[in-house]
Simulated assay, not measured.
Amino acid sequence: MGISGRVIAVVGAGLMLAAGGCSRGEAEKPEAEAKAAESAEATAPGPARLESAIPGMVLVALADLPRSPETGAVDEYCDGHRGDAESAAGRAVEGRGWIVTSEAPLGRYRVVSFVSGFDPATSGICTARNGNIGVFDGDRPVALAYAPSGSGTIPGRVEAIEGGALLVWGGDYPGPPLGELRLDGDRPRLTGLAAAQTFCDRTATVPNVYGLSIEAARTKLIAGGWRPLAPDEAPDPYDRAAELARNGMIEAQHCSGTGMGYCALRYRGPDGVLEVTTAGDEPPLVLVYGVTCQKG
């Protein structure tokens, strides 16, 4: 998937999975979240808690997936944020009334992210209620990642990356991934983000710049061997990218004039072109990035 597609998928469908700022009353959501979490923990066998290094997120062993506290209905505005149930695990999640938002492999397991519902928000974003990430062996649940009420963290989508790990995206408004879901032997665990991520069959390495300001990320990328790449055509004078270019950031391609203020910047490395997307204004922060693989 190209970087623009990932922005749509992650920003429009993954990073919008927030519990905060929803139109539904604040008193309703924590109660629903607590019921789902309590039901999950009540069915967890053995030592319930597995390792989690992601602040605000808990990973528990799970023998039986609880039913969704809602009906699984999605209105037309948010329907594009529903993912496909691609596997037996995804279909098992839907069978319990949840809405699947993403799926990805993790070793011999299948990981499914799911929510109980969405609330429309601004800029085409929909916020989710009761976000969870389940780890399945076939259609059998073995672990569940969730955020207890009041933690300030909302689990969002998962995304497979090179090396076999999964990025765990936050479920609130656009922001960097929360961490990674990995296997320790045969045991799932939540970790922080790695210091670098590889692309193009591990021939291209990008240092972790998630959440950094555009200036700090630029410094780190250049030090890592990524050269600023100017656009083929100069940005429109009224585009914020033109202002960035005047301030020395020649790699600024274009920026959106409204909404979350996304900007796209490009860098060239020996094995491809890196596209970085930022969001926000003061300062813009790195939201997502990816490499289009090509030599030279």
Rank of each mutant, 00 (worst) to 15 (best):
M57V: 04
A42P: 04
G138I: 06
V58Q: 08
A19T: 14
A160L: 13
A217R: 00
G46E: 12
T153I: 06
N208E: 08
Y210S: 11
T101W: 01
G248C: 09
E162T: 04
A121P: 07
V93K: 01
L144F: 05
A37K: 03
D139C: 02
S52H: 06
V100S: 02
D75M: 11
G280W: 00
H81K: 12
L190E: 09
A92E: 07
A104E: 03
C200Q: 05
G192I: 00
V112P: 05
Y267T: 06
P120D: 15
K35W: 15
N247D: 14
E41Q: 14
M249R: 12
D281H: 12
G225W: 00
A32R: 15
K29E: 15
L265Y: 07
R49P: 04
F118K: 03
A13P: 00
R227P: 03
V142T: 07
P235I: 11
T43E: 13
L178D: 06
E275G: 03
V276M: 07
V168N: 06
P69H: 13
A223L: 08
Y77W: 11
C255N: 10
A85L: 07
C293Q: 04
A42Y: 02
E41A: 12
E103I: 00
L65P: 02
G25L: 13
R108K: 13
F114P: 09
V135A: 08
A121V: 09
G20K: 11
E70P: 09
K295T: 10
V60F: 00
E282P: 10
Y173L: 15
P69E: 14
G156A: 01
A128S: 05
T203Y: 02
Y262M: 09
V7N: 01
I222W: 04
V74K: 08
C22L: 15
E243G: 13
A34E: 15
T43K: 10
C200G: 06
A264H: 13
S213W: 04
F199E: 01
V7W: 01
V291R: 00
A85V: 07
E70L: 15
Y267C: 05
E159D: 11
R24N: 10
T191K: 03
G2K: 10
L15V: 04
P69G: 11
F118V: 05
T153R: 13
K220C: 00
P55K: 06
E86K: 14
A195F: 02
R246L: 07
W169E: 01
N130M: 09
P55I: 02
G296Y: 15
A40M: 08
A241P: 00
G21A: 14
M1R: 15
A44V: 03
E159P: 09
P69V: 13
G185N: 09
M249W: 12
P45A: 07
A27K: 11
S52R: 04
G150Y: 00
A32T: 14
V288P: 10
A234D: 10
Y210G: 10
G124F: 12
A9T: 07
E70S: 15
D186S: 08
V209I: 05
H254Q: 14
A147R: 01
G156N: 03
V111L: 11
E94D: 03
G259W: 15
G164E: 14
P207D: 09
